[in-house]
Design a protein around this nucleic acid. Structure first.
Lengths: 141, 141
DNA sequence: CTTAATGCAAAGGCTTTGCAGAGAC
DNA sequence: GTCTCTGCAAAGCCTTTGCATTAAG
């Protein structure tokens, strides 16, 4: 996804629109998510947020984890399950798919239009659709 | 996948065909994988194997984990990455896809023919295709 | 005999939780 | 002032690893 450099005001609105209470940590975390636009683990978010912040405003690891979970639950970002060892978060919530490099542990977007799936199979009895994830696993050398 | 009740001889051949050295633990683990045919975590394999075995022949958790990893690497079974908290193993290695119930944490097969994907996007430069995973996430109630 | 596999317990990552203190409104 | 969030450290899972013992060929 393209990096988007939101102003503080815009971030506050964004959070508000998703029904997320606004705090300074949540603004900082949302800022780095959209300012980079890539697929990140909680660890990376933690590093990036705190690299940019004065010591007095450091965000704890617990808050990063909890906030990413909250953002995903509220639909601001989405989880990508591609690596058995960590969860990735994707600021792009529009339908699309992913390449996953099993060597470098990196995700790359695939535009939705580049994979056309013919007719979803009928869901199991009483099931509600939550999402369709296509992960194309590749290796580099 | 349909349960398959292999004889000890057949299991030995199966392992041999995949270039897996044969041991009694590996036979026992392969037996329960195919005898049930469903998608299982290492924990479940551990329980099932040891439920069926006399105490004198118990298989350790480390061996279960290492053996499942080995089987997957050798292509006897495949890993399914659908749940952020655990790896599932699938004795069905033919191309197919999965429903994942996020409430019950269970996987269900989707026949390959039920999802037709038009033309894979071209892979990133220098990348080799390792696999295509489609996971349709559903919730129950 | 020689090499590879197993079992055990300990260590390792990632993530969640409990609870006291701080911050938002 | 009340309710929610944050930080810290501890705990929890799932999984891997180190190493002495055992089994395989």
């Amino acid at each position: 996804m393209q990096p988007i450099h939101y102003s503080k005001q815009e971030l506050i609105e964004l959070l508000g629109q998703q029904g997320i209470n606004v705090t300074s940590q949540r603004i900082d975390i949302a800022r780095v998510l959209f300012a980079h636009g890539d697929h990140v683990s909680a660890e990376v978010v933690f590093d990036r947020v705190n690299r940019e912040l004065a010591d007095s405003r450091r965000v704890s690891k617990a808050t990063v984890y909890n906030t990413l979970g909250l953002f995903a639950e509220k639909g601001l970002i989405r989880q990508v399950i591609a690596d058995p060892t960590r969860v990735f978060y994707d600021p792009n919530t529009k339908p699309h798919h992913h390449f996953y490099d099993i060597n470098s542990h990196e995700l790359m977007d695939i535009d939705e239009a580049d994979i056309r799936m013919q007719g979803l199979p009928s869901l199991p009895e009483g099931a509600r659709l939550e999402g369709v994830d296509v992960v194309i696993r590749v290796s580099h050398r």
